[in-house]
Nucleic acid binder design. Structure first.
Length: 288
DNA sequence: TACCAGGTCGTAT
DNA sequence: ATACGACATGGT
């Protein structure tokens, strides 16, 4: 089955979003501005290929089974958070010096939300103290090694392995995939995760629960909640956020998370996204 | 060669 | 409670 449609996508930069390093998943497979990835639509495998032109997102779908294009559309809208009123967010930033200057650095950047919550949890654990390049490569390795492969015209694509598959792996195999010392955390989390349901929970409840998973500290928990569950009040504090917040607000590291929630509320997650990008790309913190 | 990468954990104060 | 070193491994 094949299909195609387009989505209106104003104030959206697909390339920037795809390569912004959000820990929901690695960037999709790119072939000359066409991005492809395997999505499960009502438990049916579908290869989704997207390309942006101006304010439009062109979507192609290929599947061995019949999938509803409306479901795919809803899924794409969700993954790139296309229904988020980003102009209202910009208005918020413009009215909030010193944040008014960061918009121009990341215009069109949106959340890159998880297509698979478990993949996001493992990606977030893998990203700790690790370069984006390395953890995205490691996740790709895991998919090829232990995920399920589906053959399409564009090639073979793999799902992210399920918790029960990862739970019985040995430490050395995970290390061989490039996870390093985090291998034991991933096995431990895979064993525990089947007993955990985050879907209906509020932010604080889910945060506390996530901290019980091995390899999950406050920063990783917030990444999981923001990129995996769209908890917009989450404010992952990493080294970059620490530096830029100290530079802009002079708030002590320990209070950053609470400060952000109080100050930014439901925009905390997006503020973090834009600050992270700004801190890394602007060079304002000196080189890098 | 050291040092850094979207931090967390275990141990010692 | 808070502070500090260890931790895999690849890139510069």
């Amino acid at each position: 089955m094949q299909g195609a449609f387009s989505i209106k996508a104003r104030e959206f930069d697909l390339d920037a979003t795809m390569y912004s390093g959000q820990t929901s998943q690695p960037p999709w497979h790119e072939k000359g501005k066409y991005y492809s990835e395997l999505l499960m639509i009502d438990d049916k495998p579908a290869l989704v290929t997207i390309k942006q032109t101006h304010d439009k997102l062109h979507v192609k779908v290929e599947s061995p089974e019949k999938v509803h294009l409306s479901e795919v559309k809803e899924r794409i809208n969700y993954i790139f958070d296309l229904k988020f009123d980003i102009e209202a967010f910009y208005d918020f930033l413009y009215s909030y010096p010193p944040l008014d200057s960061i918009v121009d650095y990341s215009r069109g950047l949106r959340l890159f939300l998880a297509k698979d919550a478990f993949e996001c949890i493992i990606s977030s654990i893998a990203s700790a103290n690790c370069s984006i390049r390395r953890w995205t490569r490691a996740i790709g390795n895991m998919k090829r090694l232990w995920g399920q492969g589906y053959v399409f015209q564009r090639g073979t694509f793999y799902s992210f392995p399920s918790p029960d598959v990862l739970a019985v792996l040995d430490d050395d195999s995970l290390r061989a995939a490039g996870l390093g010392y985090r291998a034991k955390y991933i096995i431990g989390t895979s064993k525990k995760i089947t007993r955990i349901k985050l879907d209906g929970m509020d932010y604080d409840e889910a945060f506390r629960l996530l901290l019980e998973l091995p390899g999950v500290g406050p920063k990783v928990a917030d990444c999981i909640l923001l990129y995996g569950f769209r908890k917009l009040e989450a404010f992952p504090v990493d080294v970059w956020i620490q530096r830029i917040m100290e530079h802009l607000f002079k708030v002590d590291y320990k209070h950053l998370r609470d400060f952000a929630r109080d100050e930014f509320g439901e925009y905390a997650g997006y503020v973090q996204l834009y600050l992270y990008n700004y801190a890394r790309k602007s060079g304002i913190l000196g080189g890098v």
